[in-house]
Write a protein that binds this DNA or RNA. Structure first.
Length: 264
DNA sequence: ATGGTGGGCTACCCA
């Protein structure tokens, strides 16, 4: 079973890239973030043509938006939690049956948090911290087995998840308050699949800013995208992959796709 | 210390 996560930064604009990607890799399930499309305009027929007949999506105009594309049928459990009291389309989950077992898959798009790393001065940063606190509480109250959690969590937790640890300690996405909160959230019952397969001090990045003349040469990346598995699935983990080459395709997203391979 | 680019869409927007 292969599961992909990708912040696609506009699903409609990058449908051709997704098509190319899926011609080479055939994950059973794909989780996308920043689809930036409202549900009435969701390109469902195009995705079904690509072989992903089972779809769920939660989108809005211009911002955010998440979806899951699957070759396997699934259910959408009733889940009425409004994160931080908002309807801003940052989470979707499914339940699917595979080899006579049931699994849950969560797809998250955590708020980026703005520029100023101070919750008193910057409401976006406050929202980001509150969002993670709420998620942590929810997973504490609802301990998970047979669960996979993926998405753009907008935090690079470890020293070797950024191009320069010291220089980024006061930059949103790598401040100690965020990295501690992210690890606390993960410790509600999850294992970091990417870092289980690729150990520090090897650097891993999944995002490179658009604001560099040459992203590859400057290589100022961060690992903002994550693949977590509940601890009981750890023995089933096979491999992870970071599709760095996609950052060099024409009109790329600033994030690259990542996949998890697991023997469910 | 600053500003750089890109997406959606016309907002002192978002990333």
């Amino acid at each position: 079973m292969k599961i992909m996560s990708w912040n696609i930064n506009s699903l409609r604009l990058r449908l051709p890239l997704l098509t190319t990607l899926l011609a080479r890799n055939r994950p059973e399930i794909i989780c996308l973030q920043e689809t930036k499309v409202q549900d009435t305009l969701f390109p469902g027929n195009d995705l079904k043509t690509l072989g992903y007949k089972h779809l769920c999506y939660k989108g809005m105009k211009s911002y955010n938006g998440v979806c899951i594309l699957s070759t396997l049928p699934f259910e959408i459990p009733s889940f009425n939690h409004r994160w931080c009291g908002k309807d801003d389309c940052r989470h979707i989950m499914i339940r699917f049956e595979y080899q006579k077992n049931y699994f849950h898959l969560h797809n998250f798009y955590v708020p980026a948090g703005g520029d100023v790393p101070d919750p008193q001065l910057n409401p976006k940063f406050k929202h980001k911290l509150n969002f993670i606190d709420e998620a942590t509480e929810w997973f504490k109250l609802n301990p998970q087995e047979n669960t996979i959690l993926v998405g753009d969590l907008n935090i690079a937790p470890l020293e070797h998840d950024v191009w320069n640890h010291k220089q980024l300690l006061n930059v949103v996405s790598h401040t100690p308050i965020e990295t501690n909160k992210l690890l606390n959230w993960m410790n509600t019952g999850f294992t970091d699949a990417v870092r289980t397969c690729i150990l520090p001090p090897e650097k891993i990045y999944t995002w490179w800013s658009y604001r560099n003349r040459d992203w590859e040469k400057s290589n100022r990346g961060r690992r903002l995208d994550h693949l977590w598995i509940s601890n009981n699935l750890k023995p089933s983990l096979k491999a992870v992959e970071i599709y760095k080459e996609v950052r060099n395709w024409e009109r790329p997203s600033d994030h690259v796709p990542i996949t998890l391979e697991i023997d469910l």
